[in-house]
Design a protein around this nucleic acid. Structure first.
Lengths: 242, 242
DNA sequence: GGCATGTTTCGGCGGGGGCCGAAGCATCAG
DNA sequence: CTGATGCTTCGGCCCCCGCCGAAACATGCC
């Protein structure tokens, strides 16, 4: 069986505050160096190095050597999914546990994150929830807590927008029997589902490729561009609040 | 935002070996007392009590007082989902990490668990994977890594067997637009998906209610009864290996 | 009331592990 | 070659937290 020790170890790796910060910082799917992650976690590079070695040995992260740099990234979608689900539970805790616990990081940066960000390979935050709502309302996508699917009209709609529903299909296994599934992902800032999985990744790729949203400096936050604003308004009747 | 500290705390709660053992022991959805959980984790009741208090305070567990007993259970499907996803990652680690690490609990009990068990509210193990395979092969259910759905024939088939696809529907939100979704769940012993979510829970309820499978003593393992064997053979062409 | 059982609280022990400074390798620039 | 940069290794400090024994509290049975 899966030893419960392996189970506990995986959780322990996530459970340390420094490591948690690094993992969260990698949730947008980018690959960062030890130094950058050390800064994100507020520790020295050598301490970060130790943590990263453990995370890599535990198969939560994968590294790519490039010259004298070592780029660390989330090892697999399974790990990303695990981190998402832990976030969902942590958010649920916060919902009830409003005791005067340590207030962590409330600032403009958080506002930007809540508004729109990437979550491993798909969009998240207020923007993503709005998009999901509009797509559901237009009957382009069906969503429930257990799963979701693209309708025929939805597939046509997304294709017309330029979303590539074939790319990486074999890897993602997002389609079988001619049907494109998509996974709902509970947004930790909105507490409502947005679109993840194969379809979510395709949408996110398209938005970035066409310049509708742009990554903000070096964070997970993204900004909607003027072009993106126009497209969202025209295609989804979605107005971006200023 | 969800403080990364809340995120790390949730993971820390799972990361302790004793707590992990207790949580795994509760994954079948039952409610157990502190003493029983202490035994499962191999610690004294007072230590277990401390752990359980922390797990409850962290909203991972919920307790129900009943006389002088306090019954502990997984607090929500979100928590169960989180534990599942951690298991999936831990199983992936084990796949590669075959070093002579401490071998934990290999015995007949594990064989029974690998064979068939409950996983919070649905079936898991070899049996569940077989059922999923047969349902997919018969085009009763569509599955992919991102999601799954019951086909019209599948709904008819399950209804005929006595699976109640309406019960708890409003809560589970398993249906919208007349479509019943189901969630794939990576089985940690088989490394292949079985059926979770709304449909998985409905199937499990039916199997237990009709006496096709029965819980084994006080564990998560289940046994297929003679009746169940006959039904599975007749309806799904599924033979239970002895 | 008296006793048994389940659970919590308290106190103290001990170990694992996170942290940093300093030094040692690797890689690249000049 | 020399220096700068990124990363790792080593050593030692220290604190957190898991653990148990003992005792107190709560509940139920006789």
């Amino acid at each position: 069986m899966v030893s419960t020790s392996a189970f506990a170890e995986a959780a322990t790796l996530v459970g340390d505050p420094a490591r948690a910060n690094m993992l969260v910082g990698l949730m947008d799917g980018r690959a960062l160096t030890a130094k950058e992650l050390a800064q994100a976690a507020g520790i020295t590079p050598q301490t970060a190095g130790g943590h990263l070695a453990r995370l890599t040995e535990g198969r939560l992260l994968a590294v790519e050597k490039q010259g004298r740099h070592r780029y660390h990234r989330i090892a697999s979608t399974a790990v990303a999914h695990m981190l998402e689900s832990i976030m969902a539970v942590a958010a649920g805790r916060g919902e009830i546990d409003r005791s005067p616990r340590q207030v962590v990081r409330v600032g403009p940066r958080d506002a930007a994150l809540r508004r729109a960000r990437t979550c491993y390979d798909h969009l998240a935050g207020w923007l993503a929830v709005q998009i999901a709502d509009k797509l559901v309302a237009a009957n382009y996508i069906l969503l429930s807590s257990d799963g979701g699917a693209l309708t025929a009209e939805g597939a046509r709609f997304l294709s017309r927008l330029g979303v590539d529903l074939d790319e990486g299909m074999r890897d993602a296994g997002g389609r079988r029997g001619g049907r494109v599934f998509c996974r709902p992902c509970l947004d930790w800032s909105e507490r409502r589902p947005h679109i993840a999985g194969f379809v979510g990744a395709a949408i996110c790729r398209c938005c970035l490729a066409r310049g509708w949203v742009r990554r903000l400096d070096g964070t997970r936050a993204v900004n909607v561009t003027r072009t993106g604003e126009r497209v969202l308004a025209a295609e989804l009747d979605l107005s971006i609040r200023r």
